[in-house]
Amino acid sequence: MNPKRHTFLEFCVEITGYPSVVLEGTGVVDLNQQLLEDVLGSTLIAKFYLLIETVLALSDASEREKRIRETVLPSPLFGPVVTNLIRLWYLGYWRELPDDWRQMTSRPKPGPTDAGRTHVPSELSYIEQLSYRTARAHPPGAKPTGFGSWSRQPL
């Protein structure tokens, strides 16, 4: 198992607002982590893990929230990465990082099959996106709720 899997998962709990049991239940934790590692490359991902470990080391939830708001999101280097992770979880797709981020990091422009391109990584990414679940609905064309369920309050 990836030694940083737990770190990654716990940070995703912080940014998505969902408990780890729900994120695990999607089945895309490993896929999302692998995608992130591929996009960032070994040097940047190591820095990223160091940064989020400082967040996760805080025992108080509001302190962690504050650190993310004041340190992580405003970071020119990792802010766009974290918002992309929110997109990945909630919308099931990865958006290509902007040009100025690439210039800053010297990362190459992703090619048509590279992890960093704008794309839906897998069918599961679409099916398990958190947005519809959050609205107590389901993604169109997947996880149907059963005949007549729409006429009642969601479960």
Partner: peptide, 18 residues
């Protein structure tokens, strides 16, 4: 995202809106 929301607040606001 544009309003720098994340975590539980993000989840609650998204649910309320959608």
């Amino acid at each position: 995202i544009g309003r720098s929301q994340f975590g539980k607040a993000f989840r609650e606001q998204l649910c309320d809106r959608m």
